[in-house]
Design a protein around this nucleic acid. Structure first.
Length: 188
DNA sequence: TTTAGGATGAACT
DNA sequence: GTTCATCCTAAAA
């Protein structure tokens, strides 16, 4: 079992320990990568999770093996990226909410032409997918064979745990994790 | 077949 | 701080 496999056994553990890892995407126009600085954990016993009411065509990727990429469409215009954790059929995963770019700024700027400040390129779940050029066509790929990978990154000296953003149920659960030293976190 | 609403972001004031 | 863009999914009818 590789290092990443042992991290992806549980969504809460994975959300905490994926901070500092590099999210890499081999896009058609070049490699895009950044450090993960903000995550949230979701699982099937959680009313805020897409998997709470069981498997459907939309969320079927979440029920596949750990390392599967779940990309979903929301609010009529946005895509968000998740890494599936646990065993097949569990329906659990980690939402990647923000990353800190590593030398891929030019591609990110061209994918988000209206953004003035570089901070705003990737400091939100739908912002980073747009900056990377990730959309629904990547749903169901996985980090071992597909164009999206995870690589070991840097040490995160201080992790902050809070309630999740934008959820209507399970609001009290503290399942959001972020790197307090990074300026690319969506909201403090 | 129809309809309500959503793990959000940007552009306003 | 507030509003709206805009479209897919799931559940109702």
């Amino acid at each position: 079992m590789s290092c990443i496999d042992s991290i992806l056994t549980d969504s809460v553990y994975a959300a905490r320990h994926l901070l500092g890892w590099q999210l890499v995407y081999m896009s058609p126009v070049g490699i895009v990568c950044g450090y993960i600085v903000e995550t949230e954990a979701y699982h099937s016993l959680d009313p805020a999770s897409h998997t709470w009411s069981g498997e459907s065509p939309r969320n079927k990727s979440m029920f596949q093996n750990a390392g599967t990429v779940y990309v979903y469409f929301t609010y009529g215009r946005h895509y968000c990226l998740n890494i599936v954790t646990g065993d097949i059929g569990d329906g659990q995963g980690v939402l990647i909410r923000a990353v800190e770019p590593i030398g891929s700024i030019e591609i990110m700027r061209s994918n988000r032409p209206n953004v003035r400040s570089d901070i705003q390129l990737t400091n939100g779940p739908a912002k980073l997918t747009q900056a990377y050029g990730i959309d629904g066509s990547l749903d169901g790929t996985n980090i071992f064979e597909g164009p999206i990978h995870l690589l070991p990154g840097r040490i995160v000296p201080e992790v902050v745990v809070t309630r999740r953003i934008g959820v209507l149920q399970g609001v009290d659960a503290e399942l959001r994790f972020y790197d307090s030293k990074s300026p690319f976190v969506s909201k403090r």
